[in-house]
Computed example of a mutant assay.
Amino acid sequence: MTREFSAPGTTPERLLTALAEDGYAILEPAATAQWLDVPLSDLEAMHDDWNGLPPDEYLKDGGRYRTRRHACFVVHGGEVEQVPHRAHWQPVEYNALHGGMQRWFAPMMASTVVRPAWQRLLLRLADAASALRGPQRWYIEAHQFRIDTAGGIGRPTPEGAHRDGVDLVAVALVGRHNVKGGETRVFEAEGRRGERFTMSEPWTLMLLDDARVIHESTPIQPLAEHTPGWRDTLVITCRQGAFQGG
């Protein structure tokens, strides 16, 4: 039997302190809603937007287990601006499997990005990035992921343990159904300390200082055979200066 370790949650009041001290911090769902100052039901209402995500056509391992959407924003001066749709690009130094290539994913739906809860989430993440690096313009990329077990196994991070080449990474569990695995692992980029835990409750939110830690999620498998299984996540990155790839 696989043992699941609970995510070590903090309070909204200590979120930025924990992020500064440890390089990462985790909010349980109620704490996420409190930090954002939105009802948890408003966040949960977004989950339907993960149904029908288009396939990721760029998986180099030949898998068909990942579907996704992508969008880019600039946050500055308390304002959120969605920028024209663009490719997602990472250098091979940060993504040895898929780096160095322009990946054009389907855009996020307009009905998602106009939600007040979505706008609030981006603003608060920009605030957290500013607490780490100082107030400035933030270049934000958002990724909706569904990893499924239709082929028997799904890999949330086929590239392995990695950094993203940004300043702040936020990972929210949006939902999971009929799966085991998907353990989150966070390690010091320069050191030996690490932690492992399973994000199991929708809208558990993890923030990472990308300069200090590397992260990965282990593969998922179905709990019951012949029954669909999936894990839905939202990944948002904040980067100073510009989007990766110019």
Rank of each mutant, 00 (worst) to 15 (best):
R176K: 11
K180A: 09
W118R: 05
L40A: 08
P222D: 06
M46W: 14
L121Q: 13
A128R: 09
L234H: 02
Q221M: 12
H143N: 08
W50C: 00
Y58Q: 04
Q144Y: 06
G194F: 15
V74I: 15
E195D: 05
V174P: 00
W50E: 02
R120S: 04
A45Y: 06
R146A: 09
Q102H: 13
W50T: 00
E216N: 01
W104P: 00
R120T: 14
S130W: 09
D48Y: 08
D210G: 01
M199Y: 01
F243K: 06
A131N: 14
R133C: 05
W89C: 01
S111C: 08
P202K: 04
V80C: 11
G100M: 06
W35M: 12
P39E: 11
S111P: 00
V38H: 06
H88R: 03
T233E: 04
V213Q: 12
H85E: 14
R86M: 11
A211W: 12
T218V: 02
T218D: 08
V235Y: 03
F105L: 14
I26N: 04
P29W: 08
R193W: 14
P55L: 08
R115V: 03
A7F: 03
R3M: 08
E201F: 01
Y94V: 12
E159T: 00
E183G: 03
G229K: 07
T67I: 06
P91F: 07
A45R: 12
E44H: 05
P107F: 14
P39K: 09
A110D: 14
M46E: 13
F5P: 00
R185N: 09
H98A: 01
M46D: 05
Q144V: 02
P84C: 07
G52E: 11
L15R: 07
T227H: 13
P228H: 13
G152E: 13
E28D: 15
